[in-house]
Design a protein around this nucleic acid. Structure first.
Lengths: 138, 138
DNA sequence: TACACATATGAGCAATCGTTCAATCGTTTC
DNA sequence: GAAACGATTGAACGATTGCTCATATGTGTA
């Protein structure tokens, strides 16, 4: 399994992207490269995590976790942001199927679309070491 | 449970942050607000998700998931980025205890620090609908 | 000592993000 | 029809991000 490509000036370019980076264990590198998710998958993943990387959107999600289904103005009030900001944020969440809308007259009621988000949320809270977590069984 | 605060010009400001947003169900809003994670918790959460919101860092994590423990230059080669970019990225991951370093001579070997990340990763892949996922049991 | 090497880091810059402001759309009420 | 209202959207602007380039640090080797 050892292939030693690190003797001097013995530079091997592995990825098309990498501009000749030297490698110590070429087999391992090649194996890892083969196992990496596709570019598209990585992009989607990054996109989803990016959605959760904003306090405002996180509060929105947390509110929906607790409140079940809420209109935009209540969500805005509960999460402490303007209705415009909330609407922009909900638009992003909607585009990636994190939340769903139900329209009734001039109101728009939002709710979470799938349970992955709750798990993602709780798992991440576990990671950061929560001192709080009242969204148990709303 | 219904409190009707939405009759005209009857605007109630709930959060200190919110600049008087009207509310349709004040009780619900108040309850949801009480249940929200603390500001600090939300910030930490957003920060952690932010770490995972970059394709380069995601590939790094995926590589470590598969490869176990790898040096910076192998990680750079496997994930298709420059060593500088990889080092910068690993620094961020290290600061938030997502990865750990082991130094041996002039090499630095990185590995994942906790299992939450793997779960986060797999859960998110489930959400986006993976067409790929070869990081099963490196 | 001097050099090569693996890694780390700071500055700078282009790109992206999140907010606010203003305008708009569709619905309800008068 | 007109006005009020909830929600949506686009533009603009400041803040943040992630890269590259250049340089620094520390280790192994001649």
């Amino acid at each position: 399994m050892l292939v030693h490509v690190n003797s001097r000036s013995n530079v091997v370019s592995i990825a098309a992207d990498a501009c000749s980076v030297s490698v110590t264990d070429a087999d391992r590198v090649a194996a890892v490269q083969r196992a990496l998710p596709s570019e598209e998958c990585v992009q989607n993943l990054a996109h989803v995590f990016g959605l959760l990387a904003d306090p405002g959107r996180l509060r929105l999600i947390s509110a929906l976790l607790e409140g079940g289904e809420m209109c935009v103005c209540d969500l805005a009030a509960a999460t402490g942001q303007s209705m415009s900001a909330a609407s922009h944020a909900l638009r992003l969440l909607r585009a990636d199927r994190v939340v769903k809308v139900r329209r009734a007259g001039r109101m728009a009621y939002y709710r979470l679309a799938d349970s992955h988000v709750r798990m993602l949320f709780d798992l991440a809270i576990t990671h950061v070491g929560h001192e709080d977590g009242e969204h148990g069984d709303g």
